[in-house]
Design a protein around this nucleic acid. Structure first.
Lengths: 364, 364
DNA sequence: CTGTTAGCGCCTTCAC
DNA sequence: GTGAAGGCGCTAACAG
């Protein structure tokens, strides 16, 4: 039905092999024949059959990108950056996992089925050994099958990337097909954020953390506690921390109300991320509290919208675009893997109007 | 190298055809053989070879989604909704065109090469007859090749979807493989937004419109002018309208400054969309103007961030999620095409704190 | 219900 | 520099 290589060959008066060679370009062909073939291609509006070519060549130009939620700019920015770096001939297959480990595995199977050239997995993982192991197994199989695997914004898989170079000096992470990791410094960022609040004078800091079963949540909380401990302050986890069901605005809203109920004396709230922080702000305002005069609020990620929020959010900037771009380059082999296969990208404190010193006397 | 159907067949003691039948499920197979095959599949960790299967069956489970910028929540929301409706076995290939018509065509070729099952094109088009024609031609070819084409948030292509049912009563848009369009009512939405401003008492309304060569920009401006004309007011296009180079914050910032220079008496600014509006707000604030006391600002789209902006934006809500979901269902044939192949989805006025009556006396 | 037989369209050694 | 031929892994008629 559709026009095939053979049709083009017939029209150009050459063999199918020649047409193939002209099209792939990686083989010497006489200039005169080349132009003749190209004209035939044009006349017939021939378009290569991807599946057939992938089958014969045992390669594909599909690159999978796994994200929790493409509607969330956090992931959108990373995905866009990945795509901008993989080149014009490659196609980015974006898969929304919704944060579900099962869907993550399902999509990886689908991508393996497509013989994807690479897979970029973004965002934090579910903090569960069984799932981590299942994931690691599948990723190793993908990697063995020639698919380049890149983790972006997630800690290295256990047992996948050796910690540092091996005794022999080989950095195993750099071998082609190895699993490369670009981790975000969630712990360090959160620590600096809490220090910022402590320096402002806050002593009653609530946390609306992310879902309890996510590594990102755990790491950010860890940074928070570290800052507290470093100053010899108690952490009061159980009372001052609530876990939301998701990283969304509603979780922030509900979490803030719960926090206020438990600890009306608090003067600052640390949110799981910027989106959650906006929900926190909304809840506080609805309770008649001013930000930052009565309560300070801080987010995480520094999404573009955060600078235009009311008030602009203090937060921790993650270099989402550059990390995604680097992940894209790693995926297509345009950049070598870092030594050990793992790099951690720094998170930078951004101080804006949503944080300020606490009120002199508890206003409530 | 990788395990194939034949390997599974050998291990299960059946023929390759039987394995294929078990896996695709659309053919009667004895229960005992089925389980035996399934166990072999499991033992060998077999994963179907997508390209081979696509080649043999002449179908693919790839669905292309063309967006201007996946980092923009406008497109992220639509893309996410599309993906949520296409089903678990289908893969969404998200392509960032960056608004460039050339890249749009390039990606369509790539998708045609993959023999994509469907293609969803989102967002406005470039307002250029040549490009529109080239696009229409390529889409028709895709459509003829069995790819379902869906336009989401874009006006119907000229000469593609007949206006209404044909005289004979056939609604050509409903035939499988036809090009389906879900258009946004940009004109109506903008008209209502300007009416809102006029009702508040504004008489000097500036526009920071989108790029001049985009249909979306044109349609929104048209709505604005219509509202003006309906009240017998002059439009003053050349002086009160500036076109940004993109739909981004910087365009809003620069556009607002330019507008202020040209028409310091203005009391309201209509932005191309919410993101642009945030830039406008930033510029106005930097000039010492209060929103909405000195100047009102309105956006378009009602992105999630808009309700949390400072101040919350008055805007026009576009049902991005439901439109994307519908586009997804249309793409996979889970929903029939509307009569004539075209539907326009309504845009709803959302009034928030960024718009208010103008100051009594021009404050400047 | 299951096995056999042809291709699907292209790439890639081999010869010429 | 170009052609001929085989096979990539799977599906879809046919038989049985």
């Amino acid at each position: 039905m559709a026009v095939t290589l053979a049709d083009v060959a017939a029209r150009a008066g050459v063999s199918a092999a020649t047409v193939s060679r002209v099209l792939s370009g990686n083989y010497p062909v006489a200039d005169t024949t080349r132009t003749r073939v190209l004209r035939a291609v044009d006349d017939l509006e021939y378009v290569v059959n991807g599946p057939a070519s992938a089958l014969a060549a045992a390669t594909s130009d599909l690159i999978g990108v796994l994200v929790n939620d493409i509607a969330d700019p956090f992931f959108g920015i990373i995905a866009g950056a990945v795509q901008s770096e993989i080149g014009d001939g490659k196609l980015a297959v974006v898969c929304n996992t919704g944060g579900s480990p099962e869907r993550e595995l399902t999509y990886l199977t689908l991508l393996q089925r497509q013989r994807a050239a690479a897979v970029v997995i973004t965002g934090g993982a579910v903090d569960d050994d069984a799932h981590q192991a299942a994931l690691a197994a599948r990723l190793r199989r993908l990697s063995d099958g020639g698919t380049q695997v890149v983790l972006c914004g997630r800690s290295p898989l256990p047992g996948t990337a050796p910690a540092g170079a091996t005794p022999s000096g080989r950095d195993t992470g750099a071998e082609p097909g190895g699993i490369v990791t670009l981790a975000f410094d969630n712990t360090g960022g959160a620590q600096r954020l809490t220090e910022h609040l402590l320096t402002l004078g806050h002593r009653h800091i609530g946390c609306v953390a992310g879902p309890a079963d996510r590594t990102t949540s755990r790491h950010r909380l860890e940074g928070h506690r570290r800052a507290l401990t470093a100053r010899g302050l108690p952490t009061e986890d159980e009372r001052l921390t609530v876990h939301g069901g998701a990283y969304d605005r509603a979780a922030g809203y509900d979490g803030a109300l719960e926090l206020l109920r438990r600890a009306p004396e608090l003067t600052a709230v640390l949110a799981a991320n910027d989106t959650v922080a906006l929900g926190v702000c909304a809840a506080l305002r609805d309770q008649g509290l001013r930000i930052p005069e009565d309560v300070s609020v801080a987010g995480f990620d520094d999404l573009p919208a955060s600078q235009d929020a009311g008030p602009p959010l203090s937060t921790v900037r993650l270099p989402l675009h550059s990390a995604g771009a680097r992940a894209g380059r790693l995926a297509v082999g345009r950049e070598g893997a870092p030594p050990g296969g793992v790099t951690t990208v720094r998170a930078e404190l951004i101080s804006r109007a949503s944080t300020a010193p606490p009120p002199h006397r508890p206003s409530r």
